[in-house]
Nucleic acid binder design. Sequence first.
DNA 1: CGCAGATATTGAAATGTTTCAACTAGCTTG
DNA 2: CAAGCTAGTTGAAACATTTCAATATCTGCG
Lengths: 344, 344
Amino acid sequence: MTDIHRPAERRRLSMVDVAAHAGVSVGTVSNVLNRPELVAEPTLRRVRASIKALGFVPSAPARQLRGGSGRSVGVMVRDIGNPFFSEVLPGIETRLSQEQLLLVLCSSGDSIEKEAHYLQILEQHRVPGILITPAGQDISHLVELRRRGIGMVLLDRPGADSQLCAVAVDNVRGGELAGAHLLSLGHRRIAFLNGPPIVRQCADRREGLVKAVRAAGLDPDEVITEITLPALTPREGEAALERLPARGGPTALFCVNDTVALGALRGLERRGVSVPHDMAVMGYDDVEFAALLSPALTSVRQPKHQLGQAAAELLLTDARGDSGHWHQEIVFQPELMVRASTSG
Amino acid sequence: MTDIHRPAERRRLSMVDVAAHAGVSVGTVSNVLNRPELVAEPTLRRVRASIKALGFVPSAPARQLRGGSGRSVGVMVRDIGNPFFSEVLPGIETRLSQEQLLLVLCSSGDSIEKEAHYLQILEQHRVPGILITPAGQDISHLVELRRRGIGMVLLDRPGADSQLCAVAVDNVRGGELAGAHLLSLGHRRIAFLNGPPIVRQCADRREGLVKAVRAAGLDPDEVITEITLPALTPREGEAALERLPARGGPTALFCVNDTVALGALRGLERRGVSVPHDMAVMGYDDVEFAALLSPALTSVRQPKHQLGQAAAELLLTDARGDSGHWHQEIVFQPELMVRASTSG
DNA sequence: CGCAGATATTGAAATGTTTCAACTAGCTTG
DNA sequence: CAAGCTAGTTGAAACATTTCAATATCTGCG
């Protein structure tokens, strides 16, 4: 067993070394790397051989210093653990890797401070663009960043009067679909397991739910019992069951996303409450596993892969900073997926 | 409606501008940023005021150029869409963000070329370290990268004779647990829905399964029907059912991960095959939703959050390049979670 | 008053690229 | 054969920082 030490800290190779080795100037090495068509065939071969022989790897930071903006874009989500984002990410990654852009993943955990901190670091890195699901309501700091030349696209969030590009799914409509569905099944006392109202998606889904209740000629305050969860995890979804009114309690549970619904289902099963007989349950997002839960979960589907791709696409045009680029907002429509957890 | 144009491409601010504005030298501005304790109180205030007034943001690339290695580490997974990785990532992110490190997410999609390409870009960016689940068997290129000074930790993969640090779960043991469980239930014809054998995890789980069969005094070739899937997705899991031998077919299905099992369950349900009565099904990973599938999925649990944290931790020490650092391998033990899909 | 020792600030070199004006050779052309 | 091209190559400036030896200013002391 030999102790594998890191070799003596030899200075990293630079183009100067390559130039010396190949007997040309640094300018020529640079040309070989960036505009090979300008370099004569024999020189090209010689320089490339030297690069290989020495194991030279150009320095991205140095390139960027001279060149301008970098080759990595920021993607800020509220919670990487959330399967919704895991299903959106592939759409983003595919598009970015086509453009040779690195994906810097940031998770704000719904903390405005953590978000601000990440944004600061991203700006220092001179990223050409950022894809973000903001933690808070106020997005003026994002508008400001864009003014300073960083491409900015809101992900899963409407664009606030077209100040920024945005890709979103109509959450009000989704909440409305959910509400109308539960009401049509005869439910008149609905518990809404929601996230903090500062989160736009939560507020919007709530608005849709209220709208549906009103449209049915009922009083939202009587029909809806809203329970605010500190975090959108299965654990909190299960814990929230404790806070349901004991008597005259709800007959249906609308969970603001499938992850919460997962916890709620688990909790109900443990308590021996039959779904949907004693309690109807529905989620939101229609993540991959929703259809296969026990019982199969009714949910509101969002086109997640498309959302990611569209967002990346929009970011690319925004980051390019084409003059005359108008702020664009792409809104996808949600779709109700009725399954056993509400209509068994 | 006003056309919001990007403002005239004014040159980005540098420390020179700040220095001029505050009436000090650039050296002093640098000190304010990096060693404020060396700067006199009034100067400190003045420079900070100038930074704020001008909206100066230091350039990370320039810092890195002089300073050495960068502040972002690479995390290469085989497939971001896989919920296993979504559950490992939070553990990594938490630890990295504590150290003010950015997480560059790369998804190789099991392609050696895509992996190599990403690695090349990461090296150009002078990342201090990389956390990787390699796409292929051969990891000599990773050892080489480490020799060149990039911290390297294998994620979810043993460390090949301690050439590299590694964090893994014992996959052979996991496969063995699964096999022993199915055999103990009396199953004698087991279909193994596996991934490509180049993927180490797949090969190891297979080895464990074979070991369990041998331990029971049976012939692996008779008991196990292996079906190789081109990708580990629900879609492929479902498609694989078509390839099961029609007569004398298996009575149990061991899926190499829960995502595949998800697809298999969906397919069996569509075909009206009762689980576990007509066919026992088990998965691997025990992802968040496994316990709530219909029927609840028997699976082999891996401590995912811990895995991520331990990996990040190890990478930090490896990237620091403490002299005398020995290659370390952390192996977690898997745990069998028996549920309705095998023992209803 | 002169000097030692702190304390605070400066100016310039160094980092690894890109870019571009200037230069060289080798041809063609009138 | 001089003049004008063209293709290929060069050398140095520029980019935004950090670092560090050198300098300037102050404080107290003999």
